[in-house]
Simulated scan of single mutants.
Amino acid sequence: EIEPVALACCGYNSEHIIKIDPLGDDVSSQLFFSGVVGQGNEFPGHLTEVSHDIIKKCGGLPLAITITARHFKSQLLDGMQQWNHIQKSLTTSNLKKNPTLQGMRQVLNLIYNNLPHCLKACLLYLSIYKEDYIIRKANLVRQWMAEGFINSIENKVMEEVAGNYFDELVGRGLVQPVDVNCKNEVLSCVVHHMVLNFIRCKSIEENFSITLDHSQTTVRHADKVRRLSLHFSNAHDTTPLAGLRLSQVRSMAFFGQVKCMPSIADYRLLRVLILCFWADQEKTSYDLTSISELLQLRYLKITGNITVKLPEKIQGLQHLQTLEADARATAVLLDIVHTQCLLHLRLVLLD
């Protein structure tokens, strides 16, 4: 599937296609060992034999080696059982024959099945984002909290717990860091396209979420859609919505032109609403006064070079935790002080 795309990109001149070979045994081993114990540290001798077999079964694929190594790093003190399980579960043939599709899916599926339940939900949630989209840690943490994925642990507040979950996904190599501060704290990440493809498929299988974009004309889905992500760039893209039952949607993310945005009135049970607009004209506006009817709303994030009209009163949104508009807003929320659950507020008001 990759070669026809490469041919098309270079004008069907095969001389311009460079085929990248899988990593050799020595480089694969170095990458795996450094991923488990860190660069320059000694690898435990009793794990060497089983490790070489696992490395071989990764087929020289860097992403498979890195994610597998990061997983074992978190299991380093748990003895041989987990190592032997992965060793026996991986089959060399898939990664050798198809290192970019089925083989990688097999590795990710094994790692996913061994994740704690709390991290599974947090990982699947990333499927709502567009490919190569830079995801801010602060936004993601608040979205997880609004979704109800996070529980308080001892003396830690939920935001701290959620931050630890994000750091865990980074540490396991399931997301890739982008912005890192001077304290070596990861502030944002992206999801590798193979990981994104896997979690989107897994989200549909588990009826966790559905993502629709312009490339899809049909999609396999359950009767009740819980989380919906729409990536629409023109009005023709909206046709797949006709076959979905949307009355139970609790979370929606929209990436696209304002004119493609469906009516919010159809989503009365929304808890999370993420709107990333782009507009054909700078003076484009969008009426969001109907959010006052979303009584379960906990999180609202709006971005884009547009003007949004917010309701003057939101006192009915008693569960609202986050309201951020990285867009021009036309209203001052007169009763904002009465939203007792509000933790984060950012608005850019018009003069």
Rank of each mutant, 00 (worst) to 15 (best):
A69G: 12
S188I: 06
L23Y: 13
Q296K: 11
L295S: 07
S290M: 14
N139R: 04
I302Q: 04
A279C: 15
A64P: 09
K57V: 09
I18Q: 14
K259I: 14
I134D: 08
Y286L: 02
V190D: 04
Q143H: 07
P99L: 04
F232N: 09
C10A: 09
L110I: 11
Q176V: 09
E324I: 15
L275D: 02
N197T: 02
F198P: 00
Q30D: 14
E15Q: 14
C118I: 12
L317A: 06
L187E: 06
E131A: 04
R268A: 10
F166S: 00
A146I: 03
M194R: 11
S93I: 07
L320F: 05
A329Q: 07
S285A: 10
M252A: 04
V190C: 09
A242I: 11
K183H: 10
I302C: 03
E42F: 08
I314A: 14
T322K: 06
A235Y: 09
E312L: 14
E282I: 08
S89I: 02
F232S: 08
H231S: 11
I153A: 11
F254Y: 15
C118H: 12
D213Q: 10
L317R: 05
K283C: 08
M194L: 14
K73Y: 11
N98P: 05
S93A: 12
E160L: 01
H192Y: 08
V190L: 06
I150K: 01
K202M: 00
Q176K: 15
Q176H: 13
K73F: 10
K224E: 15
A279N: 15
A242K: 07
N98Q: 11
G163N: 02
Y267P: 01
L246E: 01
L169N: 00
